[in-house]
Design a protein around this nucleic acid. Structure first.
Lengths: 119, 119
DNA sequence: TGTACACTGAACCATATGGTTCAGTATCAA
DNA sequence: TTGATACTGAACCATATGGTTCAGTGTACA
């Protein structure tokens, strides 16, 4: 099986499998924000939001920097390129698989016709 | 915030956040398989593999049909289109965000130059 | 008929997840 | 210096996850 060497697909797909975290990413795409900002926006405690941000940070999707009291969150370096690539490859395989099935079915139909003629 | 009405992004992203399940999908892209086949391929008990297949099935990524003793697993109807769309939209926002940052930085540099001249 | 096979469900286990509260620490501002 | 703000870490909770074993049920086949 393919090993996806060092590519943390697990971590990033898990990170974006949560609606709150997807929302945080979209928010940060509009503007940087503090933990307090995000906690307010998503109606959650600071501690709760901190955990979500940590998950996103570990997945490389967000970077943070603390200046004074405030930790500012920014979109991280990763653009979900490997994830997009995986999905696109999967879709190509999916298409290929169903094209193949179509051919198999066509083959069966053809055989059926021949069979019918032989009767 | 966007609501993704009825679109089970959570379920599908969670489903593909597991390496075993991604492997199962790739396997099924090559050929249909029984639970026993998959369990053997991924060195797992039947019960364990059944659970993974159930997760994929609930996410609409796999369909199964039991004939006699054997449950055959096939790629499901969903091609991860919504998921791909979400990722692509995110990447566009990411790009836009960093273009904007570039402009801001350019602006600061320009100001800095003007400031320097005023001294 | 009897035996082997393929799956299924229940129960269990360890760990992770998504949240909270509470008790800090550090910083800002008056 | 005092008080408010912003975060952080520990502890806790309920539930989910990823796996197992064990005890079935139903099917195929000699």
């Amino acid at each position: 099986m393919v090993q996806y060497q060092g590519v943390p697909l697990d971590a990033s797909f898990a990170a974006i499998s949560d609606a709150t975290r997807r929302g945080v990413l979209e928010q940060l795409a509009r503007a940087d924000a503090s933990i307090t900002d995000l906690a307010a926006k998503f109606d959650m405690t600071l501690t709760g939001m901190k955990k979500h941000v940590s998950v996103l940070e570990h997945a490389g999707l967000v970077t943070t920097e603390k200046v004074g009291r405030v930790r500012t969150c920014t979109l991280g370096p990763r653009r979900l390129e490997e994830e997009t690539a995986w999905l696109e490859r999967y879709r190509r395989q999916w298409d290929a698989r169903f094209d193949e099935l179509d051919r198999v079915i066509e083959g069966l139909k053809r055989k059926e016709r021949v069979h019918g003629q032989q009767k």
